[in-house]
């Protein structure tokens, strides 16, 4: 099992880091955070404003789009079948990809956190929230990737999901009605947690919503996962 996971990880480093479409997902928000936090300083603007905003967008976009694109490409180019014939299980494949994507996204998250001025225990909490968010988003993306026949289908499904996860927390700041709905989405809850890092305490509401989100996403993932690598 470890041999296969390591091979998948090695392959992603060699392959995906040359894929500009995926690479840009990993570096766009860390770069934007550094630029905005350095260049813009308006009086009265909340502390860590851009870091928190882009952190949640990063969660909603990077892991989701990259894993969906990776799986859809493997299906479209028929490389997934090669893995199947080498006895790579769906679980090994997904663990290898999860390690790679979540690690790369955590590196980006560290840049966002550091650029936003988080230090010490705040930075640790920030990274923990980001880890949870990246992993949940990875599961959403993997589900989309597994269910999509090709990259075109994956993109057409990924975009609306990505908009909901990444932009609703921002829009809810300006519109209460949106906020009433978006609070049930894990990215909104993570946004609220990131905004209160100094006095972090996960309330019952937040915990229930996050757990429900993870359960629903994990269930959808398990159902689709069974379709992956299946022999007709």
């Amino acid at each position: 099992m470890i041999v296969h996971i390591w091979a998948i990880l090695w392959k992603q480093l060699k392959d995906t880091l040359k894929n500009k479409t995926i690479l840009i997902q990993f570096i766009m928000f860390p770069c934007m955070t550094v630029i905005m936090e350095t260049a813009i300083n308006i009086q009265g603007m909340p502390e860590h404003f851009f870091a928190n905003l882009f952190a949640v967008m990063y969660i909603g976009m990077a892991p989701l789009t990259s894993i969906a694109a990776i799986i859809a490409e493997e299906k479209e180019k028929n490389t997934l079948r090669v893995l199947q014939m080498c006895n790579v299980s769906a679980l090994e494949y997904l663990i290898g990809n999860a390690i790679y994507i979540v690690l790369v996204c955590l590196m980006g998250s560290f840049v966002i956190g550091a650029a936003g001025g988080y230090q010490g225990i705040s930075l640790f909490y920030f990274m923990m929230i980001m880890f949870f968010g990246h992993f949940t988003s990875f599961l959403v993306g993997a589900t989309i990737g597994v269910l999509s026949r090709n990259q075109m289908t994956a993109t057409s499904v990924t975009v609306p999901v990505m908009i909901i996860l990444a932009f609703l927390p921002m829009l809810s700041m300006f519109n209460e009605t949106i906020g009433k709905f978006s609070k049930y989405i894990f990215s909104e809850q993570l946004y609220l947690l990131v905004n209160n890092l100094d006095r972090i305490r996960v309330g019952t509401d937040t915990a229930v919503i996050l757990i429900c989100n993870v359960v629903v996403i994990a269930a959808a993932f398990v159902v689709s996962y069974r379709k992956m690598f299946i022999r007709k």
Binding site: W6, D15, K18, K77, R81, L83, C86
Partner: peptide, 24 residues
């Protein structure tokens, strides 16, 4: 087979190396 794809962004050597890594 036609439906046994190769990784297009990887070199010839790395494609074979990956395949061999999967075999341990």
């Amino acid at each position: 087979m036609d439906n046994f794809g190769l990784y297009e962004r990887m070199s010839c050597y790395n494609n074979l190396r990956f395949y061999q890594m999967l075999d341990g």
